[in-house]
Nucleic acid binder design. Structure first.
Lengths: 153, 153
DNA sequence: TATTGTTATACTCTATAACTATA
DNA sequence: TATAGTTATAGAGTATAACAATA
């Protein structure tokens, strides 16, 4: 523990990260989504039309689990599987119109989440914080938008 | 996603938190410990001699799981159960001499972990980061030294 | 009767690997 | 024969609740 009694950067990151993730889980639950589902919707938004394999690999999720994730979203008409062309073994994933609408809701949830979390910081302080955290993320090779703890949500 | 393409503070916290936790898991595994075991050893160091119930409540771990945690540490002679006085239903927990030695190893691991994580930041930047993170942690009522994600490690 | 700690059990989540269809 | 996706299954980890000892 450090002189201020709050702990190291590493511990604060782990502690706040878990807290932020738990808050986000609650918030997207209001949209009847898990964080994993929300994350996949976002990824498809950013890079649409890829194969399931491509998304699964990027997220670090084993195929067997990924199928389930897509099944849930497809059964709710948020995501559409389209047979691959010309390789008909694969499926390309796309958001439906409903999926795009839900994606906008997720964006609103994300902004509320951010404001709640940083409520006590000024705009300048948030910017400083984002820069410092971004530097660490860069240095450790973390992909923007890909949650490492994704592997179990 | 933010203009710099790295994401919001909230997302960076969740992402880096999971990454930091994963790195720490690897490091303490070298001591043949899980993060949960290391966390309990630390808690007993800070406030020794309390009842199992007191520790379990503080960590937010259900009693049935806590028993297991103590069993593992006791079987390795790192922690000792002492019958409560005068209430003989309870057990007070203490570190053994071996447990104290392991606790020193955990401290060394923690410092290496911190240095690795913050390698690219100056001392002043680390301090700034710790202050900003500490403010958020305070605001959200997080207890120093208590990992929320503790509930499943 | 209530409380501390323990044990039993059922449930959820996961990865591994077998399987189907296309190539 | 190899690959994309799917399904089956067995294992790990968890919380709930029944239990034993002490108050």
């Amino acid at each position: 523990m450090q002189p201020d009694g709050r702990g190291s950067v590493a511990f604060l990151l782990a502690q706040l990260g878990a807290h932020a993730a738990a808050l986000f889980t609650e918030r997207v639950a209001a949209l009847d989504l898990t964080p994993a589902q929300a994350g996949l919707l976002r990824l498809i938004t950013v890079m649409p039309g890829r194969s399931q394999q491509a998304y699964a690999e990027r997220l670090g999720v084993p195929p067997s689990r990924f199928v389930n994730l897509v099944d849930e979203l497809e059964s709710r008409d948020l995501v559409e599987r389209r047979r691959g062309e010309p390789d008909r073994r694969s499926y390309a994933l796309h958001l439906t119109t409903q999926g795009q609408a839900v994606m906008r809701d997720i964006g609103a949830v994300g902004r509320a989440h951010e404001d709640d979390l940083c409520a006590d910081l000024t705009a300048a302080e948030r910017q400083t914080l984002r820069e410092l955290l971004g530097r660490i993320a860069d240095q450790h090779g973390l992909l923007p938008g890909v949650h490492p703890g994704y592997r179990r949500e």
